[in-house]
């Protein structure tokens, strides 16, 4: 009976990671999130708190997972660098065209004048 339960526990472990992976992907694409306010001030913080810290094995030993997601975030490198979106291929013409009008050499609005 107990063995069965344990096996089930192991079998279901992939699901825990799944949730974290999904939320990571969510954070990566945060540019596209319409309810930015909720992302910044709301739900994300609570989601982190709900995770269990440790599991006990046989009441004597503790399973220590130093790099669980929450701890990893809490002790990550403190740097203000914003790493670029790897899906952007800056050698593609399409990508280059997407920013043409950011430069004075690009197209100007009707209301504005280059002079």
């Amino acid at each position: 009976m107990e063995e069965e339960e344990e096996e089930e526990g192991v079998g279901l472990r992939w699901k825990e990671g799944l949730r974290q992976k999904a939320s990571d992907a969510f954070l990566r694409q945060q540019q596209a999130v319409p309810n930015l306010r909720k992302l910044v001030y709301g739900s994300v913080v609570q989601a982190d708190d709900s995770e269990d810290e440790e599991q006990e094995l046989g009441g004597l030993f503790r399973v220590s997972r130093p790099q669980t997601s929450k701890k990893y975030q809490a002790n990550a490198v403190d740097s203000s660098r914003f790493h670029p979106d790897t899906s952007h291929q800056w050698d593609q013409e399409e990508m280059l065209n997407s920013i043409r009008d950011c430069f004075v050499t690009g197209k100007w609005d009707e209301s504005q004048d280059a002079a």
């Binding site: 945060q30 930015l36 910044v40 203000s80 914003f82």
Partner: peptide, 15 residues
């Protein structure tokens, strides 16, 4: 531009 993870945490700290 899009807010960096560092900035998002900074906003929470400002609050």
């Amino acid at each position: 531009g899009p807010l960096s993870p560092y900035t998002i945490e900074f906003l929470r700290h400002i609050r």
